[in-house]
């Protein structure tokens, strides 16, 4: 797949639940794009996030200038959800009719749902909402792939692989390979690459 270029700033939101590797995924993505010559701004919310809360990274990819680390309401071009509910939550704030969404289908239940006080929308409801509220959406069972590869947290890389295949952002497998070669040990490198490929294969 060839890297595509774009004219205006591209706004990407990666979201999930603390512990899903959201920050790692957004930084990997950003490093690839900086290497490709873009000016990238990431805004992250972590800190309390490891306590099971919602996590969100805003990625702004520009040709020339630093952007606000917070994307305005309704301003996302791409939403990558490591958890379906969180993807939907982000969509309801940052979505617009042109937005493209990739989301991992495996839920992580909020405590209020576990205790029975709240209810988690069905897979069907979530799918319908994404179909209505986005220009394109892909549901990906990334956690199962991660589990198959030995670690559920690899779902974040599965999602990155899938994202590369959609062509929504200017990076490809070669760039990913180069990036993780710098940062990961040989063992982790291999399995991450596998996860990336598995993700890419899931986009038809």
């Amino acid at each position: 797949m060839k890297e595509k270029t774009f004219i205006k700033t591209r706004n990407v939101i990666l979201t999930g639940v603390g512990g899903q590797g959201n920050v790692m995924a957004s930084r990997t993505l950003a490093h690839m794009l900086v290497d490709a010559g873009y000016v990238v701004t990431i805004g992250e919310t972590f800190g309390m996030s490891q306590r099971g809360g919602s996590v969100m990274s805003h990625l702004r990819i520009s040709h020339d200038s630093v952007k606000s680390p917070q994307i305005p309401r309704g301003g996302a071009d791409v939403i990558v959800g490591l958890e379906p509910l969180e993807a939907l939550r982000v969509l309801t704030v940052y979505g617009n009719p042109q937005v493209c969404v990739l989301y991992n289908s495996r839920p992580v239940y909020p405590i209020g749902v576990i205790t029975g006080e709240l209810s988690y929308p069905s897979g069907e409801t979530i799918r319908d909402a994404f179909e209505r509220l986005s220009a394109a959406c892909w549901e990906i069972d990334a956690t199962s792939v991660g589990l198959r590869l030995g670690n559920p947290v690899l779902s974040n890389i599965v999602m990155i692989g899938a994202l590369s295949k959609t062509g929504l952002l200017p990076f490809d497998r070669r760039r990913f390979e180069k990036e993780i070669k710098k940062t990961l040990s040989a063992g982790k490198y291999k399995v991450n690459l596998k996860a990336f490929d598995a993700g890419a294969d899931m986009i038809k």
Binding site: R51, G52, T125
Partner: peptide
Amino acid sequence: KSLPADYQTDVQKTAALIPVREQTFC
């Protein structure tokens, strides 16, 4: 510039279905 009205209405309806994610001990 605002989003189309029907989109906004749908978003509001959808948002009402989303349970809060309270922070908790891991």
